[in-house]
């Protein structure tokens, strides 16, 4: 069965591009644009990988992690995606349970490698 990626990101420009990328590389893709939406979708179908934007219209992306954990629906790995990363943000993400913190946009080859690494 194809691994499932949940993209949590509020820009449809970005999610449209990711949707093509991951569908073409054989993943099952689901998209959520808000914290609330991400919690709903993530609970309904546990994701293998969650790509998590930190700034969402209704709150901090890291809230999704905690909510999913409480519902017993944590993804196998969550990769935080942020435009700018400093030591403090990195620490917060790792403390919240992210497996990695990626600075977006990263080259698609790198992104796919990260995902594969966390799936294997």
């Amino acid at each position: 069965m194809a691994a499932r990626i949940l993209i949590v990101e509020d820009s449809t420009l970005v999610t449209d591009a990711f949707q093509i990328l991951f569908t073409e590389t054989g993943y099952e893709v689901e998209v959520a644009a808000t914290v609330a939406d991400a919690i709903d979708r993530g609970t309904e179908n546990t994701a293998d990988i969650m790509l998590l934007d930190l700034t969402l219209p209704d709150g901090n992306g890291l809230e999704v992690l905690e909510a999913l954990r409480q519902r017993g629906a944590s993804p196998r790995a969550t990769l935080a995606m942020t435009g700018h990363v400093d030591a403090k943000t990195r620490r917060e993400c790792l403390d919240a349970g992210c497996a990695d913190v990626l600075v977006k946009p990263l080259p698609i080859g790198d992104l796919l490698r990260h995902i594969q690494r966390h799936l294997s």
């Binding site: 591009a17 093509i20 990328l21 698609i108 080859g109």
Partner: peptide
Amino acid sequence: SHDLRTPLAAIITHAEILRDGML
């Protein structure tokens, strides 16, 4: 600058998908 970054990221990703022959 923040607002310019998002659409630009989408443009680059789309172009990389094309460049790498995924479509």
